[in-house]
Computed example of a mutant assay.
Amino acid sequence: MLELKTTQEITAMRTTGAFIADLLADLAGMAKPGVNLLDLEHRARHLIEERGAKSCYWDYAPSFGSGPFRNVICLSVNDAVLHGLPFDYVLSDGDLLSMDIAVSIDGWVADSARSIIVGTPRPEDQRLIEATERALEAGIAAARPGNKLGDVSAAIGAVAADYGYLVNTEFGGHGLGRTMHEDPHVPNAGRAGRGLKLRPGLTLALEPWFAQGTDRIVYDPDGWTIRSADGSRTAHSEHTIAVTDGDAQILTLPADR
């Protein structure tokens, strides 16, 4: 069941989103060659505790994972793209790191992800990250009242096609608000003009993720970490947004933007 949010509730989600934006920026600045993924996990835990926020990941046990998840952030490196379980891994120059986090503040959730290159960038990795960011922008631009959910999915998928990337639709965006995962599911490809009609007050997490060479995925033995089936590199970008009477509002931006 869809729950449309009031202006006040969207403002509360924006507060959570601004905290997440600052947290991801903090971790991006910390992610250098020689830094352990567990150091990033512990830093995220400290910032969440300091803010009085609550992790949406800790003890999360969905059907698709080998739960419960006992970390506060997903850290996925190189060919890993989603649900990366932080482990004892030291970042190397050129690693492609995707960071995904959702927290709740005063009962309201926001969810965001970003991919960065650690140290020296590869042009093909920069292009991959750019594709996810442009696809996210296109999805947000399509999230207008009167449009359909399929318009959002189609806009994301069109950017992937322009860049030459295949799209996996098993995992995608979703509704959120009082909890991390609410209806509806938002695939990263679809047919324009189909599906749910968008209405002001609908809050969504849009999250394009692509691999350089495939749309197939495999799971690590940890039961969580999802990788590209061919070992090609991956990237992931995500914002929480609110559908309004006009342009969608991005709720996971720093407070000064």
Score class of each variant (00 low, 15 high):
5 K>H: 10
7 T>P: 13
8 Q>F: 09
11 T>I: 07
13 M>L: 04
15 T>N: 11
17 G>V: 01
17 G>Q: 02
18 A>D: 03
18 A>F: 03
20 I>M: 08
22 D>V: 10
24 L>R: 00
24 L>Q: 04
27 L>E: 06
33 P>L: 01
39 D>S: 13
40 L>K: 00
42 H>W: 15
45 R>V: 12
47 L>E: 08
55 S>A: 04
56 C>W: 12
61 A>D: 15
65 G>A: 15
69 F>M: 11
69 F>R: 10
70 R>L: 10
72 V>C: 10
73 I>E: 05
74 C>M: 15
79 D>Q: 15
81 V>R: 12
88 D>M: 12
91 L>Y: 01
92 S>E: 15
97 L>N: 09
98 S>C: 05
101 I>F: 02
102 A>I: 05
102 A>K: 07
104 S>E: 14
106 D>R: 09
107 G>V: 03
111 D>N: 07
115 S>L: 13
117 I>G: 06
117 I>Q: 03
125 D>K: 05
126 Q>M: 10
127 R>V: 12
128 L>I: 11
131 A>E: 13
136 L>A: 00
136 L>V: 00
140 I>T: 09
144 R>Y: 11
146 G>K: 09
146 G>D: 08
146 G>F: 14
148 K>R: 15
150 G>L: 03
151 D>W: 04
152 V>N: 12
156 I>S: 06
157 G>T: 10
158 A>T: 14
159 V>K: 13
160 A>R: 06
163 Y>G: 03
165 Y>T: 04
167 V>G: 06
168 N>S: 12
169 T>M: 10
169 T>V: 13
170 E>V: 10
170 E>C: 06
174 H>L: 03
179 T>Y: 13
179 T>G: 11
184 P>R: 00
184 P>A: 01
184 P>G: 03
188 N>M: 15
191 R>S: 13
192 A>P: 09
195 G>V: 01
196 L>M: 08
196 L>E: 00
196 L>Y: 06
196 L>R: 11
197 K>A: 12
198 L>W: 05
200 P>E: 02
203 T>Y: 07
205 A>W: 07
208 P>M: 02
211 A>E: 14
212 Q>M: 14
217 I>R: 13
218 V>D: 15
220 D>P: 07
221 P>C: 04
226 I>D: 01
227 R>M: 09
229 A>S: 09
229 A>N: 01
229 A>Q: 00
231 G>L: 02
235 A>M: 03
239 H>V: 02
247 D>E: 14
251 L>P: 01
251 L>E: 00
256 D>S: 07
256 D>E: 11
256 D>P: 00
257 R>Q: 11
